[in-house]
Design a protein around this nucleic acid. Sequence first.
DNA 1: ACGACTGTACGAAATTTAACGTACTATCGA
DNA 2: TCGATAGTACGTTAAATTTCGTACAGTCGT
Lengths: 115, 115
Amino acid sequence: MIAQHPERDQIRLENVLAALGNPIRLNIVRILAQRGEQACGTVGADLDATMSKSTLTHHWRVLRDSGVIWQRPAGRENLLSLRTEDLAERYPGLLPSILGCAQETEKAPLTASAG
Amino acid sequence: MIAQHPERDQIRLENVLAALGNPIRLNIVRILAQRGEQACGTVGADLDATMSKSTLTHHWRVLRDSGVIWQRPAGRENLLSLRTEDLAERYPGLLPSILGCAQETEKAPLTASAG
DNA sequence: ACGACTGTACGAAATTTAACGTACTATCGA
DNA sequence: TCGATAGTACGTTAAATTTCGTACAGTCGT
């Protein structure tokens, strides 16, 4: 596992909310919630193919440092996944409430398969 | 009612989360949740007596523009209150989950009366 | 009307965030 | 080993955010 992940107890609500208070990172979280663990590149492609890799790296860092996602190496890829359990333990209901109504997406067609 | 309040339908999750992703504004929301409708000055005093009025005005604006609070004039005061109903309708469970675990406050002693 | 009180508006400064390009590390496959 | 792939690190720039001081507007009590 890559460094910088906060312990569950170190996760701060304000950091989680700030991390999610950005449309790009909110989409990242939606994608991970729907598709499960994904490589950085896969998520990036779903998100916005024109976005630079270094910008994406920035967003992985914000999400990772705030405790929203895990990031772990696998071969030459880095796999991203939601810290669903830790967030549920620390802030019960928060993630479901965010994801439950997160269908008001502007770009990513994540609603296509629902229903 | 002061201008700039978004309609319920115009409230965007990313804006709500960004507004709440700031420790000061998170505290404001906690205070309003616990004490109900309050004048700006009252909340400001509870928050941080050294903070300038113009800084507070900035935070009221962010919370108001994002749809988190109502702000309405009453005499020479402006009363602030949470848009609990609108948020509950738009993002069910979001506010309770944020407030339910919001006791990890650093400064404001909001847990004192809860019992 | 006057002065105190409550809060906003505006402009400026400091800080933070977001985004990019380039250079780099590490892994995979031939 | 070589080349392609996957992603990070670093430095930079642009934009947004946070904070303040000052000036102003509306309301209350006398």
